[in-house]
Simulated assay, not measured.
Amino acid sequence: MPPLLSTAPTVLPEREWRAREADHQARMETWLGPHRARRQAGATHPVLDFLFTYYSEPPGRLRRWHPGVGTVLAGAAASERLNWPFYAATADGVGLDRAAFLDKRRSAVGWIEGLLGGTASRPGQFGCFGLHEWAMLYRPEDGEVRHPLPLRLGQAGTDAVVESHRVQCSHIDAYRFFTRAGAPRNTLRPTRETQPAMDQPGCLHATMDLYKWAYKLSPAVPGELLADCFALAADVRELDMRASPYDLSAHGYSPVAIETPEGKAEYVAAQRGFAARGGVLRERLLTVCRELLDGA
């Protein structure tokens, strides 16, 4: 007999949650279908594969819709979820087993809450112009080029852009990929330990990482929130690569030429829009964290 949940959550009728589940699966198929087709064909994509390689959530789990913490699924069909991790029965149906989830992930939930809350408390910085991607290609040595793609300005032109700008990347998971020559040009020295104190809402990588925190909190995160975070990460990834030194015209992407005033303005406008979208999602993720921890 599965353990009983200790709280009295909101109960979703089977017709309602089945409809939400179907909507989620159809929405995620927008990305999962093309990704599956590429894998079957042995093809790669320099922009979109990042969402499935750098980020580690398997496509099968992305298709799974969850109601999230505080909600129970009614109806006989919900019983199949008793075989899913962190689900348990109540008198009204099946939902998240908060106690079991926190038993395994309490420290992770607390760390994510601290990171997201700290990021939300800071003003966004919008003067980096995506130069992290350029510093990842600055005077590369053997093995330091991550993507076999042509450069819009060539190697000398790419190096010149880095040398003529102030590089100020605050995100450890961008900075750690800088070349050995590029890392000293950064004005900041982000580390994993300082990440909760350095991440800020204007950073494209911090915004993309909202998707990571959503799946790290799964199944406590509602499927709709996970999908919103994934969609934002996909949009941000596109800007990140369009503003990079790579020539992606063969893949249908026009450049955001951040080496020009017009390109900088285009980048900052998009960056501000993503920061606004990310701020809303960050607060929703914080609500999940706090409901988990406060309701324990």
Rank of each mutant, 00 (worst) to 15 (best):
A250Y: 06
E262L: 15
E283S: 12
I258S: 00
P255Q: 12
R242W: 09
E238M: 11
P261C: 12
E266T: 14
D228S: 10
A276R: 00
V256T: 12
A233M: 03
S254W: 12
R277L: 01
Y246S: 07
L281I: 01
L248C: 13
S254M: 04
E283Q: 14
R237G: 13
P255H: 11
A243Y: 02
A269P: 03
D228K: 01
D240R: 09
L248M: 11
C229V: 03
S249L: 06
A250K: 11
V236S: 08
Y246E: 13
C229W: 01
S244M: 02
L281K: 05
Y267V: 05
R277T: 01
E283A: 13
E262A: 15
P245K: 04
F230S: 08
R277Q: 05
L232K: 05
V268Q: 11
A257K: 15
G273M: 01
D240N: 10
V268T: 13
M241R: 12
A276T: 04
H251T: 00
A257N: 15
L281D: 03
P245C: 06
A275C: 03
A231D: 15
L248Y: 11
A231W: 10
D228Q: 09
E238R: 15
R242C: 05
H251N: 07
A276Y: 00
R277Y: 01
R242Q: 13
L248E: 09
T260P: 06
G263K: 09
F274S: 08
A233C: 05
C229T: 08
L239T: 11
G252W: 05
S254N: 09
Q271P: 01
E262M: 12
Y246C: 04
E262C: 11
Y246G: 07
H251I: 00
E266S: 15
D240A: 07
A257R: 15
G252L: 07
H251W: 15
S244D: 00
Y267E: 11
L239N: 00
A269R: 13
V256M: 07
P245E: 09
E266H: 14
Q271G: 04
R237W: 09
F274E: 10
S249K: 12
R282N: 06
F274M: 08
R272I: 00
D240S: 08
P255M: 09
V256D: 10
V256L: 04
E266Y: 12
A276Q: 05
L281P: 02
F274L: 09
L232Q: 07
E283R: 14
D235Q: 14
E238W: 13
H251G: 02
R272F: 00
D240M: 07
A233T: 03
R237M: 12
Y253L: 14
Y246V: 06
E283V: 02
D247H: 05
A257G: 09
R237F: 08
A231M: 08
A250I: 02
C229A: 13
E266R: 15
A234Q: 01
A269Y: 07
